[in-house]
């Protein structure tokens, strides 16, 4: 659905169902250079089972207008503003990669607005290679190609797909290319500048889950395991043979883990 937020038209997917927040919505937050399309099969899965779902495109991403935000904190504030606009008091966050950092920051600085946190293929900090940031600034298509290459696991690279006939790598390239120029650079810069992850992990007190990819080259699994330790949670799912883009490459594993977490909690 289209929403007027801060005088900009932005887009949020509701998983194909009317958004009726009878309970804390599942609030999907996408990663660097991504959009709501990172969560196509999560959004539809949960919306069709009665969960209210929001997967918003942040400014300059996907179908949203506006200027790209330059810090994780600014992105958190934007998500809170969107919650306010939709009259949503609390959300259950699913954050992928950079979206995990945003979820962590929201849970830390707005503890009354987040009831649960699922962190997918993320860590407490995401140190981005300086060369990649430079590439994102000056040669964006090369940065997109590199991220799509590193971000996918064996299934993507073998051009196999649970969705018949579809191609992870080339879809990923077009998804990222559809964002406005500069969005990827802003995201990567925000990731590398975010240093409050350990502090947030120490202070937040809410149920946390981690879903990690065994073959993640972008936020390696060991970083996720360290985050789980700092967050004092043993709710960890490791998806075997998966790369960083596991919500699209291994949707059923991710959905199973999310469903188990949200139902139990």
């Amino acid at each position: 659905m289209k929403i007027n937020l801060n005088n900009e038209i932005i887009f949020a997917s509701t998983g194909g169902r009317v958004f009726e927040p009878k309970m804390d919505p599942l609030w999907f937050i996408h990663g660097s250079g991504q959009s709501h399309l990172s969560f196509i099969l999560q959004g539809r899965f949960f919306a069709n089972r009665g969960w209210p779902v929001i997967a918003a495109d942040m400014p300059s991403h996907g179908l949203s207008n506006g200027i790209a935000l330059m810090s994780i904190e600014a992105m958190s504030d934007w998500q809170i503003a969107l919650m306010d606009q939709l009259d949503v008091e609390k959300v259950q966050i699913v954050g992928h990669s950079q979206g995990g950092l945003i979820g962590l920051d929201m849970a830390h600085r707005y503890p009354n607005r987040v009831s649960q946190l699922s962190l997918v293929a993320t860590a407490l900090s995401i140190p981005v290679n300086a060369g990649l940031i430079e590439m994102a600034k000056n040669k964006e298509q090369s940065a997109i190609d590199a991220m799509i290459d590193w971000g996918h696991g064996p299934e993507g690279h073998n051009h196999d797909n649970t969705m018949p006939g579809q191609n992870h790598l080339n879809f990923g390239v077009q998804l990222m290319a559809a964002n406005k120029v500069g969005a990827l650079y802003a995201d990567l810069k925000a990731c590398v500048d975010y240093t409050n992850g350990n502090l947030a992990a120490n202070e937040i007190k809410l149920p946390v889950q981690l879903i990690l990819a065994q073959k993640d080259k972008m936020t390696p699994m060991k970083s996720g395991l360290k985050a789980a330790e700092a967050l004092r949670t043993d709710n960890i799912t490791i998806v075997e043979n998966a790369g960083h883009m596991l919500p699209s490459e291994h949707p059923e594993d991710v959905n199973r883990a999310l469903r188990s977490f949200f139902i139990k909690s």
């Binding site: 099969l41 539809r44 899965f45 069709n48 051009h159 196999d160 797909n161 649970t162 969705m163 018949p164 006939g165 579809q166 191609n167 080339n170 949707p251 059923e252 959905n255």
Partner: peptide, 26 residues
């Protein structure tokens, strides 16, 4: 509901045909 991958009926998709589709798309 188009929320998971897989096959319903071979008029719409089929595992062997899907390999061909994925190969040509690549």
């Amino acid at each position: 509901n188009l929320e998971i991958g897989g096959h319903l009926y071979s008029r719409i998709s089929n595992p062997t045909v899907a390999v061909l589709e994925q190969r040509v798309a690549a």
